[in-house]
Write a protein that binds this DNA or RNA. Structure first.
Lengths: 351, 351
DNA sequence: GGCCGGACGTTATACGTAACACCAGGCGGC
DNA sequence: GCCGCCTGGTGTTACGTATAACGTCCGGCC
């Protein structure tokens, strides 16, 4: 049979526009069979291939610029060694940091991570992961609404949930932040400064992680013998939060002396609202955030907030998914949070 | 190193009733051959399969919950219909918005987009895309340093560069923002307000998009008969920018009346620095940014800045890559920028 | 000398899909 | 009566990889 193959291992041919070399090309160049190439490059050759042959294979692979065809490998193995990370929004710094943590652990185990930013949870059940049409082995989903969860479950893939209700019976393994405790810390911090009229600027987002925040604040106020904080909903957006703050500060009755915000972005808006009314922060009104975004130390005054270990939750999430893929159980995790007191909160004004 | 976890996808999954159905299972259920299933589900059956048979196939596929094996499809087609978007950092809102634009166009063409956030451009040449080990058809790379570009080029994949030097002979197609013009607009804005002593807070990042900013500012000042602005380098970081601003404002000689910043993040730091010195913005010193991040309207006063059409550059980038993949040329693109004057700049103080 | 077994490789196969080449029957034209 | 053509499919193959099953040489031991 005629062999039009001209390249007899003469020299490197990187990215010359031709087709990519396969393991068979490497085999030909090294004078061995394709199986041997696979063994050597897959590091499974101890005691089955001589040192000299292995070296020859590696040299040939290097010369040709061989890179394995990942689609073929995935097909053969029935696994892609890739995880999908579903997040509600990428523009929120928190999720970018979660990704970084997940990628770190994945990398250490030879796994990849692919991101799918889903504006509204996830898409229709038929094709939950719209534009991320990549073959994946498992899913890590962060801060998903309940109906979105159902759509993901349909995929039949191993699943780990981040920042989601851990008490669903038969639900997927969860990795959570101690969000409730974090907001208790904030509330106690404000109470400790003498504040008795606290307005709560909450995000109008129907996810577990935001729902528990309100419960925690209310419970902590009740424990101190105070009524629930007036709660103002707002989109997770500076302008909406500004309006909510203005509404809270101009509502009938005695003016709140503190604005407890569920997110740093809301806190930034709250600061603008307070200033628009001529109030000074923190002398006239204290403002607290939640997240410790870069934004929070860019503001003036710097924001009292709660630091979220975003990278850590990403690491734990990936670790849990790897456990699932290996057939091991993934016990639930809850990570502690720490209050970061800064300049935007101070003692309540007298009067 | 966990070895025996390779059979992750092949184990029987309780919810799905065994292993995932293949096109052959669908064929069996519908009483046709696998080839017919492929034709029907691939929408290539017009005039080759009867309406009735096609319907039967679709019903069977739906009943079984069939989803094509993407690895097998990619192997067969030699293409993955997936693009890789390489960005320097995800925590910067700009890149998240670029992604959104790229994903929009990709989706409309049945393509997927996978993100690879590369802390330092890209990784070593051997495996440029570290944790994003997914089979891809092409690359869109944004704001890459020169050496990183070389590593990407080695991949031999179609490549589109965003925010990169368009004048490299034989270089890849580029999609750019008119960054130089944007900074000229800012400079003229400040000159028009009477500022004659402008300090330039620049990012210490060796990429084209930041290099041209300094050139543009210097050229525009020279055109007005002014010496180059004292330039202070800073990491792309609030604290570093704060220090740079303090240094600029306390340097020997007459104090600058304006701080021209290459990025909104730098501007946020500059504001903090100015305030730390007891200066009011904009009465004592004007501050301008660049990007129009959400941050810029969260600051107080709101930042004069330049709006970047991030989604648009993502859309154009993906469009260019699709052209390349179709064998068509991708002419260079340059998108115009618009100045957004807000409250952080005002007339230069007299004296 | 025959036989065993380690060292060193090779041959063959399957993964699931898409598409090319073929084929059976019916029908109209000449 | 034969050809050509249209309709509605089917058999088969190849994509590139990983690995199970199978050889082959050769030194050593009873």
């Amino acid at each position: 049979m005629p062999e039009p193959d001209t390249d007899a291992g003469s020299g490197p041919r990187p990215g010359a526009g031709g087709t990519r070399p396969t393991s068979r090309d490497v085999a030909r160049a090294a004078g061995v069979s394709q199986a041997t190439v696979s063994l050597v490059l897959g590091d499974k050759w101890r005691g089955r291939v001589s040192e000299r042959t292995a070296r020859a294979v590696r040299v040939a692979a290097g010369d040709l610029g061989y890179r394995p065809n990942l689609a073929a490998r995935s097909l053969r193995l029935g696994a892609t060694r890739t995880a999908l990370l579903v997040v509600p929004a990428l523009t929120h710094e928190y999720f970018a940091r979660v990704y970084a943590g997940a990628a770190e652990v994945a990398d250490a185990h030879g796994f990849g991570v692919v991101l799918y930013p889903s504006p509204a949870g996830v898409g229709p059940a038929r094709d939950p992961f719209g534009s991320a049409r990549t073959a994946i082995d498992g899913v890590i989903a962060s801060s998903m609404a309940a109906d979105a969860l159902a759509a993901i479950g349909d995929g039949g893939l191993p699943l780990v949930m981040l920042d989601s209700d851990p008490d669903v019976p038969g639900g997927p393994p969860t990795v959570n932040l101690a969000v409730a405790d974090g907001l208790r810390q904030v509330t106690r911090h404000l109470l400790g400064l003498g504040h008795r009229r606290v307005a709560h600027i909450a995000a109008d987002v129907d996810t577990w992680t935001f729902r528990v925040r309100t419960e925690a604040v209310t419970a902590e106020l009740a424990a101190a013998g105070l009524p629930p904080a007036p709660r103002r909903l707002s989109a997770l957006d500076v302008t909406a939060a500004r309006d909510a703050a203005v509404a809270a500060l101009t509502a009938p009755g005695p003016r709140p002396t503190a604005l407890l915000c569920d997110d740093d972005i809301l806190a930034a808006g709250a600061c603008k609202g307070a200033r628009a009314l001529g109030l000074r922060i923190p002398q006239d009104v204290s403002v607290s955030g939640f997240d410790d975004l870069a934004l929070s130390s860019a503001l003036d005054p710097e924001l009292t907030t709660v630091r979220l270990p975003a990278e850590s939750i990403g690491r734990h999430g990936m670790t849990a998914l790897l456990a699932l893929l290996a057939g091991r159980p993934a016990p639930p995790v809850e990570l502690p949070l720490t209050l970061v007191p800064r300049a935007s909160t101070a003692s309540a004004p007298r009067g």
